[in-house]
Structures are given as C-alpha cells and as structure tokens.
Design a protein around this nucleic acid. Sequence first.
DNA 1: CCTGACATTATGTGATCACATTTCCACCGT
DNA 2: ACGGTGGAAATGTGATCACATAATGTCAGG
Lengths: 257, 257
Amino acid sequence: MPSPEEQGLPLEEMTYRRLREALVSGAVLPGDRLSIRGVAASLGVSAMPARTALRRLAAEQALDMLPSGTAVVPRLTRAGFAELSAVRAELEPLAVRLAAAHLPEADLAELAGLVAAHDAAREAADADAAQAADRDFLFRIYRAAQAPLLLGLIETLWLRRGPLFRSVGALVAASGGLRHNHAAMLDALRRGAGEAAAALLRREIEEATRFIQSKVRFEGDDTAAERLAAIGRAGRNAEVRAPVSLSLHRRRTKRPE
Amino acid sequence: MPSPEEQGLPLEEMTYRRLREALVSGAVLPGDRLSIRGVAASLGVSAMPARTALRRLAAEQALDMLPSGTAVVPRLTRAGFAELSAVRAELEPLAVRLAAAHLPEADLAELAGLVAAHDAAREAADADAAQAADRDFLFRIYRAAQAPLLLGLIETLWLRRGPLFRSVGALVAASGGLRHNHAAMLDALRRGAGEAAAALLRREIEEATRFIQSKVRFEGDDTAAERLAAIGRAGRNAEVRAPVSLSLHRRRTKRPE
DNA sequence: CCTGACATTATGTGATCACATTTCCACCGT
DNA sequence: ACGGTGGAAATGTGATCACATAATGTCAGG
C-alpha cells in the first residue's frame, strides 16, 4: 500500500525510502538481518526492487553485508561511534563554514524560526519535536552550503547513526537533554563569522559524543566484561576489555514482521 | 575473460571492480554514458551484474544518475573540485591523526620503503610510479587508522577524483610535479606527532588543489565565458561568470567501445 | 543434556523476458 | 536551410525462474 506521495515513484525508490525510514525510526534494530525476500514480502514489492534498495543502502554504508551477502543492520560499537563522531566533527563544521559565505536573509529568518520552534518544543517537554527542530536547523545550513557531495556524506553519517539515536533518544531526554546553543550559532552566522559558528558546532558534536559515550552501553562492551571481572579477583575493575567474540552467540533479535 | 585473481568472485564484484578501474584509469571520460546493456556487453557479463555494479557506483557518488536512470561519468566542475578538495583536507588529516596513535614499527618501515620508492621513481622520471608510491604511502596510513567508515569515505573521494586525475597527471608531471614531502610526514609519525603529520598532509592537499586549479580548465568555466566577455565591452574581465546552461548543447563524447 | 552429522529450508546470485519510457535520427513541411 | 514530427532503436524497471550456497532445524549417539 503505497503512501500518497509515493505515487509514480519507481518501486526501488519507494523501497529504499521505506528502509531508510525504518532505519532512522528504529523499526529495525541493530543486528537484524534484512533478507531480500523478507523485505520484499514486508513491503509488498517483488524481489528485484528489494534487492536493489538493500544493495544501495549497503553501498552507502547504512547497512552492513555479511560475507554471504545478507544485509544486516549495523551494530554500533563504542569505537564505531567514536569514529562516526570524529568524522562528523570534521565534516559538519566544514559545511557550516561553506554555508556562512552565502546565507541569504530568508534562510537566516527560517533558522531563527527553527530555534524558536526548538525552544517551544522544549518548553512543552516534547523531546521528539525539539530534536527534529535541531536536526532541521542543522540541515538547513548544510543545504545552504551548496556542496552536494558534502551534503550526501553528512546524510549517510546521520543515517548510520540512526539506529543508535532512537534508542538513546529517550535516555537523552530523561537526562535533561543536550542543550544545543543553536541561538549562539545563528548569531555567529548573522555576523558572517563562519569560523566561530563552525567552532560552536564542533564543540556541540564533541560534547554530545562525550555525553552519549558516558551514558550508553554499546554493543561489545556488554556484560561479558562484568562477568569476566566478577570471575577474576574482585576489586580490580581497570583494564577490563570486553572481547567482542564472547558476545557472539547471544540470541539474535528476530523480526519476522 | 576474467583475470586470474578474479576467479571465484561474484560477477557483480568483478564488474564493479572493472568499472572502478575504468574510472580511475581514465578509460571512461567525464560525460560518458554507461548503459546497463552497454557495460554488460563490454565486460562479457549479463545485464544483472552490470546493473548492480552501476547502481553501486552511483550510490557511492562515483557515478551520476540522469533522471532517466542512465549512469553518467560525473563532470568535475571547478566548484565540485574545490568541494572535493575541502572534504579531503578535513578527512585525510583526521585519518592521519587516528593512525598516529597505533602505528607499529613494521608499518613505519613499510612507509619508509614507499618514500624511497617514490624518490627512485622520480629519479627515473617515472611519474606514474611516483604517483602510485605516493598513493600507497597515504593509504597505508589510512588503513592503519583502523577506521573502516572513514576509510570507505576517503576511498569514494579518490574514486570521484579519478576521472580528473588521469587527465591532469601528464600536466602535473610536465610541470615538475607536486613535491610531496612525505619524508617529513613520516618523521612526524615516527615521533608520534600525529598533529604535525596531519597538518603536513593538509598543507599538501591544499597546495595540490591550488596548483591544479591554476593549471586546469574545468567543465563549465569553458570558452562560453570568454565568448561572453568578447561580446560585451572589452576590458572588463572581472565578474564574468560562466552560465553552466550555456554549455548544455555541447556535443557529448561518444564512446561506443 | 550436549554434540555431531544430515536433511530441509532460506537466501543470494545470475539470467532472461516483457513492458513503459526515453533517446535518437531520418523525414517532411515550411 | 531550418525546425518540428514521427517512428524505430535503445534503455531502465520490474518480474520470474534456476541454481549454488548458506543457514537452520532434526535426530541419533555419546
């Protein structure tokens, strides 16, 4: 059952968008296997568009591929998350610098509106809306950079972060949330201070990364480490590294529908 | 006729690698259309692997897609090249910083060998070999960063630069070539000075970019601008921007085989 | 209760075909 | 000579099938 605005689109495009949405919304979880016939049946399309869409996501690194060719929603390890954040901390400030050169007044007004929307959503304790406003704020700037290659890279980074983000969202909101100072960034952009705005964004990304790393339990640094520590002499909790191989035979979450 | 080391690989992987090689080697030129049946016939495979490989390259932004779905080798405009270089100048130094943390002695020795190979190739006036040694030197470091996501991004950047690179290669060699100070970078890495090595690489990328931008005529900044300037009052050569749309009906280079 | 081999199922790959659309080119009228 | 028009060739999309392989469950033996 295609949604209204999907009329006329190629089936492959529709399948791709739905899978993408499933990734960012958390409808599929890290570790889930996505088989060609499985998604084809789930989305009511034939195997061909499903295959193309899956391979496309894999090429964008939004999905991993087992050696057998099966697509799997990537598990974000602590190291992987750190790497992702490091790349974001380079590319997104670059986009801000590029955008600062040509931000028309209309865009600045729209950005101000998004800051206001964010604040309003926070007042209403609507974490999802606040988060959406933040995201729109940033991507409005990224689009203004008029750098299609860079924009595509940033989008794939966010896509890859998607699965994690959903599971952390509630936690972040409960902990008081990240306090993005987008108003200050907007001020810098108004002044044409691209470097300052970029520096603010970089700090924002780095702080959010530290916050999440301190709060979230990642794949791989799971209870195996604690079990090992418990078996060993108690007291010594330093230097305990979780061998990833130990968590291999953990039950994989099934997702039949 | 599959090459020896391609035995056992899926046809899609073989097709993908061949297309990739065709891109970086300059066997296909910017603006060339790559049709499914065309590459299938050229590479002796059926339409299916050809389709998959083309879509994969497109997802990696190594190929552009016309609205009709036909793949086309991207034309690199001046702005596009500047963007590509800006992204490289952020990501590749990041990889150097990450790699500096864990570079075993064996890798350092290998890097020294590559620097020597580069110098030897320069002595022999073998521009291709010197360039290959430079490339290997950098990617050895990037791989050592143990950041698969970042490495994948860097590879797609180089892939997209591929078509241009070939056409510029001879020019660069004739002009005396870029003098990459990889020996200094290796020294910095030996000292564990990751930041210094990263700064050296950034300067190298920025200088190479400036050099190429000063020497190369890109798609879009072609003679249309000059014709416009000639039509207008002579003398005023400032502010003449080449409208891209003017070069649209230029003859497209055919590439039947 | 666990471990191994075996049969069954699921899955990816590749091939081929039909169909709608786009692209290209020759032809014709002005 | 120029430009529009028609049709033929080329092209992408999607569907379906066959085949090899990987994954899974089963069952007998320890």
